[in-house]
C-alpha cells in the first residue's frame, strides 16, 4: 500500500511537471522571439546610423544579446553570408516557421544598398510582431490548460492503475 501511494504520487508529480513544462513552451518561444527582435533592431541601427559593415555589425550585436543568439551572431561575424544556414541550425525555442521566416532575411542581407536591407529587416520585424501578438493571446489559455491537464491526467492515470 505504501509503495502504491509513493508510485501514485510520483506519477502525479511527473505529469504535473510535464504540464508545467509544456505550459511554459509558449512563453519561452515568445522570449526568444523578443530577443531576436531586439537583435534585429540593433542590426538595423548598426546598418542605418553606425554605418558598420555586416561582419562588424554582427560582432557588435554578439556582445549585446543573450545566448544562444550571441554565438549565432559570433559565427555570422566570421561568415556573414551564412545567415540562412546558421539560422536553420540555431538551437532555441523558436518554431520552424519562425526560423524559416527569419532565414528569408539572408537573401537580402549584404545585397543591395542599406535601404533595401533595412526594409527587409522591417518586414521580418513586422512578422515577428504579428507572431508575438498571436502568442500573447494563445499563451494565456494554453498555460492554464497544460497545467490543469498535467495535474488531472496524473490523477486519472493513478486511478486507472490502482
Amino acid at each position: 500500500m505504501f509503495l502504491t501511494i509513493i508510485g501514485g504520487a510520483l506519477v502525479c508529480l511527473s505529469t504535473t511537471l510535464i504540464g508545467i513544462y509544456l505550459g511554459g513552451a509558449g512563453g519561452r518561444r515568445a522570449k526568444d522571439l523578443l530577443e531576436f527582435k531586439k537583435s534585429l533592431i540593433l542590426l538595423k541601427s548598426q546598418i542605418d546610423y553606425a554605418i558598420y559593415t555586416l561582419p562588424q555589425a554582427f560582432s557588435h550585436i554578439a556582445q549585446r544579446v543573450a545566448p544562444p543568439l550571441d554565438n549565432f551572431y559570433r559565427r555570422l561575424a566570421e561568415a556573414p553570408d551564412g545567415w540562412s544556414d546558421e539560422i536553420l541550425q540555431l538551437k532555441s525555442n523558436l518554431h520552424k516557421d519562425d526560423l524559416v521566416n527569419i532565414s528569408l532575411l539572408g537573401a537580402s542581407l549584404g545585397q543591395g544598398d542599406a535601404d533595401v536591407q533595412i526594409n527587409s529587416i522591417d518586414m521580418v520585424l513586422a512578422t515577428i510582431d504579428d507572431t508575438l501578438g498571436q502568442l500573447t493571446v494563445k499563451n494565456k489559455t494554453d498555460t492554464k490548460m497544460y497545467r490543469s491537464l498535467g495535474v488531472v491526467s496524473g490523477l486519472l492515470i493513478t486511478i486507472a492503475l490502482l
Binding site: 489559455t141 494554453d142 492554464k144 490548460m145 490543469s148 491537464l149 488531472v152 491526467s153 490523477l155 486519472l156 486511478i159
Partner: peptide, 14 residues
C-alpha cells in the same frame, strides 16, 4: 476527472 478535463479543454477552445 474526465468531466474536469472536458471543461478545461472546452475552455481552451479544443
Amino acid at each position: 476527472l474526465v468531466a474536469v478535463l472536458n471543461q478545461v479543454l472546452k475552455g481552451a477552445g479544443r
